[in-house]
């Protein structure tokens, strides 16, 4: 039998209605968006095609946001995730075009090389004990330079010579390559990433330990959790998602442009922050991240249909993030 509520202290567990509403603020906002855009634009907004537009637009951001979620769950941070993803895109594209390797091999090599490069991140954080933010800030530049050195400063795309002047083995992209970056596969891959991260973080002991560490590293350590090992594990999983994100960008763009992924970082982080408090989780979580990314994507899509100029959209994105953070922090007690 469960112990009855006898202690007045325990009463504080009951959340206020306002707090509950704020916990679901992102979901409520998402529903409101759908309602408003439907009322204004009718079926031009709420068509199957447009829903696919929204999902397609959010997919790459979501994959990077899932990478960020896994890093942030043990209270880590990675500013260099998307510069590393650019490197993954370079590798992926060059393996495919320059060396003409089979697609599946390209995928595996890309993931492997991203994992290898992530060892450097882990070395700086775990061995050199540099705070995550600072270590990855430095690595951002390292990735940019190394990556562009590899591709010789120019994009990797069909019809271009390699930096050594050799003719690429492949001259055109096969349908299987292009399919990765188009629906339905793009969307399926995104949803698979969310699902895998969700199951890992919520239902495995490793995920629980990672969250425990994110909540209180000292207490986790004194509970016998090997905090370094779990930070490393989270890093390796992040690296896999980064590689996937980089490959999606390359396939979607049919090329690996210089710094093609770098700009995804801030949107990905925004999605994680918006999703943090969804359902009162109060920690980075995969489903919340999905909702965060969807909210931003829906807003952008709806406003574009309403003929709001594209160059104003960043302000809307920023406003959503600010509102989400207000919901999360403004009602907190002063420490």
């Amino acid at each position: 039998m469960q112990a009855k509520l006898k202690n007045p202290m325990a009463d504080k567990g009951g959340k206020s209605t306002l707090r509950r509403l704020l916990d679901w603020a992102a979901v409520i906002a998402l529903v409101l968006c759908f309602l408003v855009f439907y009322l204004v634009k009718g079926n031009r907004f709420l068509s199957v095609n447009n829903m696919i537009n929204i999902l397609r637009a959010m997919s790459i951001t979501t994959v990077f946001a899932i990478a960020a979620t896994v890093t942030m769950a043990p209270d880590g941070f990675d500013m260099s995730a998307c510069t590393l993803a650019s490197c993954s895109a370079y590798v992926f594209m060059s393996m495919y075009l320059w060396y003409g390797l089979p697609l599946i091999l390209c995928v595996l090599i890309t993931i492997a090389i991203t994992l290898v490069m992530y060892q450097l991140t882990m070395f700086l954080i775990l061995v050199c004990k540099i705070p995550d933010m600072l270590a990855t800030c430095a690595l951002m530049f390292v990735h940019q330079g190394l990556g562009q050195w590899y591709i010789g400063g120019g994009a990797v795309s069909t019809g271009m010579r390699t930096p050594y002047g050799a003719q690429p083995v492949r001259v055109k992209l096969e349908p299987a390559f292009s399919a990765i970056g188009r629906e339905p596969w793009l969307i399926i891959i995104m949803l698979a990433c969310v699902l895998v991260a969700h199951i890992f973080l919520e239902y495995t002991k490793h995920g629980r330990f990672i969250y425990a560490m994110g909540g209180n590293k000292q207490a986790a350590k004194l509970s016998g959790i090997n905090v370094k090992a779990y930070r490393y594990l989270a890093g390796m999983i992040t690296a896999v998602f980064i590689a996937i994100g980089g490959m999606l960008v390359a396939s979607r763009g049919s090329s690996a442009q210089v710094m093609c992924c770098d700009n995804y970082l801030m949107q990905a982080l925004a999605a994680v922050f918006v999703g943090r408090s969804v359902g009162g989780a109060e920690k980075p979580n995969a489903l919340g991240t999905l909702i965060g990314a969807m909210l931003v994507s829906t807003l952008e899509n709806g406003l574009t249909i309403c003929a709001v100029p594209f160059y104003v959209l960043p302000a809307v994105k920023g406003a959503v993030l600010a509102l989400a953070l207000i919901a999360a922090y403004a009602t907190k007690k002063e420490q």
């Binding site: 629980r208 969250y211 425990a212 909540g215 209180n216 000292q218 207490a219 986790a220 004194l222 509970s223 109060e282 920690k283």
Partner: peptide, 12 residues
């Protein structure tokens, strides 16, 4: 600070 994970449930 060290003994319990305050953000987690009693069960965990």
């Amino acid at each position: 600070k060290e003994g319990v994970l305050v953000g987690e449930t009693v069960t965990f």
